[in-house]
Write a protein that binds this DNA or RNA. Sequence first.
RNA 1: GAGAGCGUAGCUCAGUUGGUUAGAGCGACAGUUUGUGGCACUGUAGGUCGUGGGUUCGAGACCCAUCGUUCUCCCCA
Length: 460
Amino acid sequence: MNKPTLPQGTRDFNASTIYKRNYIFNTIRKAFQLYGFEPLETPAMENIDTLMGKYGEEGDKLIFKILNNGLDNPAKKTEITEAFNKVLNGKLTKQITERALRYDLTIPFARYVAMNHGQLTFPFKRYQMQPVWRADRPQKGRYREFYQCDADIVGSTSLLNEVELAHLYAHVFRLLNLPVTIKINNRKILAALAELCGGAEKLIDITVAIDKLDKIGIEKVKEELQQRQLTAAQIEIIAKFLSIQGSNQEKIQALHNTIAHIPLGKQGIEELEYILAHQQSNNPLPLEIDVTLARGLNYYTGTIFEVKANEFAIGSIGGGGRYDNLTELFGVANMPGVGISFGVDRIYDVLEGCNLFPPQISSGSMVLFFNLGPTESNRAFELLQNLREQDISGEIYHEPSKLDKQFKYAERKGIPIVIIIGSKELAEDTCTIKQLKSGHQTTIAQKELLNYLSNLITSL
RNA sequence: GAGAGCGUAGCUCAGUUGGUUAGAGCGACAGUUUGUGGCACUGUAGGUCGUGGGUUCGAGACCCAUCGUUCUCCCCA
């Protein structure tokens, strides 16, 4: 028998990891609800047609496809062999696979809205916290199964939605005590740049190249643009665009000078200005205009966001933006939307790497009753049940052993309080309470136990 | 899809130019200690050296293949 292993890029989570993950989930969920979003859950798998073609060519390759059942049916052997040969040539067919694991939460949401738009109240604000799967090669901060936490607003073009989402981002990271930068840009600005360089069809070439600016530098970007068939004059325009620097105000000014004469560009700039203007002066958001921010997902049409941790090197820990035509892919038009996403697994890595988890987030047992014999443990069990009725979590050691072992069990499980009932306590109707951390120990009447513990626990 | 590193005890790792019986720390278990943990000391258990082949008198070490894993690029959360 071989040792069992996990599929590549997946992980088991032990208790202490889950306590920490729940701290993140709870923080985000609370904020989502505070901002008026309501929960939604969708299935792990979708029909493959729902997902394919929504994430670009690369995205399609990274979707986990589910093999159909019954492929070994002898009656269909010819048909299926034929279909399989198509798969070998890179063509998916329904005979082989008709379902796939969800790749993100936005497309399933769009599918849901398209299916239910008659029943929903618009603007519809939903949040969703579920795992997604991508067949990427795993590496640092990249997993094949990971959680996204999304908040989206559909049925409104109001920029107030963008403002709300920017505040929601800032709110959550403030609660988590995590210093971040929310990078912001607008697809319309990039579209205007493309127009300036001779045509909308250049948009993808341009965004792919300039997105790499901070990694490979301006000269390499120019080289790449050249390879992508842009003329020297066009590259010069882009280089000037990329040289935009300074404060957000200075960047806005520079954008005005560069692309404001193009209607789309003017609109994009105004949208950025609107979002920047709607901050409270006493509590500004960590917003930073980044003209090179493009984002790979093809469906964005306006504002785009990306969140980076300030003090930890990992990919983005959040992203999002405006998409004006998503449900159109599912036959429902005029359903503009905007949304953001939190990457819980990366946020976990950052909090762990920067030591930012609060010390007291375990939710294991509060008390351990020692087992010092059959009669003693009967009484202990009675008292334990009383505590449990009153919402105090606890357990009793499973067999009478040396105190040494029982102490070590409590210590290893991080149980802060042990309660000892031996023959002496049994005879006197008392119990001995010891706090592991301080070593402080006291003996009280058994009927005082609940009261004593309630006070003690709130003071911990 | 392209490239690089690493697989030795439950965990972290050492293992010399290829040479007898494969090592340490931590952890586990037992004892010193049958009503007071963390410390200390003593002892015990635990390894087909990822797998398969090859070179060699001899392989944990060298070569090839394969699997797993980590990281980088691409792209992303």
